[in-house]
Simulated scan of single mutants.
Amino acid sequence: MEIRKADKSDIEGIVNVYRVCFPRELKHQLWIEASFHSYPRGIYYVISDEERICGYILWCVKNGFREKTIIELEQIGVHPDSAGRGLGKKLIETSVRQFKDHLGSLGHAVGAILVTTSEGNYAEHLYQSALGVSRAAVIQGYGSGSEVILYNNHLS
């Protein structure tokens, strides 16, 4: 499995994973293309085998380009056909280093990491173990339920 920064030719593969992972969302292509064009603020990374994109992650700068900025894991998806193989954790751990390097090349350090997820989502434990985040707040009635805000501002 290869993890790398996505390029324009990966948009269709990212959309395919997004569509399967988030079926209630609308206009998948439009969302991915708009987010893709947020560079250098946001970058998609993909994990792929020799045949197709198995998953993607979108990292974004949350609070502007500062000396120490906050980054957000805005979205991650692993195709159900590839789930259960540890690809999500591998994608998170590898891509966060790549995104930190990207920001470093622009002259910025990462001071904190933010990620949100639906309350009760198994991914909360994944984020805690992979990123060292912990619960900072819960927003009741967010979307279809409650949203958990996870945060880590004790980065070394």
Rank of each mutant, 00 (worst) to 15 (best):
A112C: 06
G132L: 04
A109Y: 10
Y44K: 12
Y127R: 01
F99C: 12
F99T: 04
F99Y: 09
V20W: 02
I139T: 11
G13A: 09
G86M: 08
I11H: 00
V61N: 01
V138F: 03
E50S: 13
S48Y: 01
E93Y: 03
N152L: 05
G141R: 02
I139D: 08
Y39W: 15
Y18S: 03
I53Q: 02
A130D: 11
G84D: 07
I149Q: 07
K90S: 15
V78A: 13
E74D: 14
T117D: 06
N16R: 08
N153K: 05
L73N: 01
I113Y: 00
E67H: 06
K8H: 12
N121H: 11
C21N: 08
L106C: 08
H102S: 06
G88F: 00
Q98A: 08
S144E: 15
A136G: 12
Y56P: 00
V61A: 00
A137P: 04
C21K: 15
I76H: 06
V46L: 08
V115T: 02
I71W: 02
Q140L: 05
P80S: 14
Y122P: 12
S156F: 06
K62F: 03
Y151G: 00
V20F: 10
R97P: 00
A109Q: 11
I3A: 15
T117V: 10
K89F: 12
S105K: 13
G145W: 14
K27T: 04
T94N: 02
G111Y: 03
R24G: 11
I70R: 04
D7E: 13
A136D: 09
Y142P: 02
H79E: 10
P40Y: 13
L150N: 09
L155A: 07
A123M: 06
V115W: 03
P23H: 12
I71L: 04
A112Q: 01
I3H: 14
L73K: 04
Q75I: 07
G55P: 04
C60A: 05
E25C: 11
Y151D: 00
A130Q: 11
I149F: 15
N63P: 07
E33Y: 10
S35W: 00
L150I: 02
Y18L: 05
Y151W: 15
R135F: 01
L106F: 05
G77L: 07
F22W: 05
L150Q: 05
R52T: 11
G120V: 09
K100Q: 09
S82V: 06
E124K: 11
G104A: 02
Q75A: 13
K90C: 12
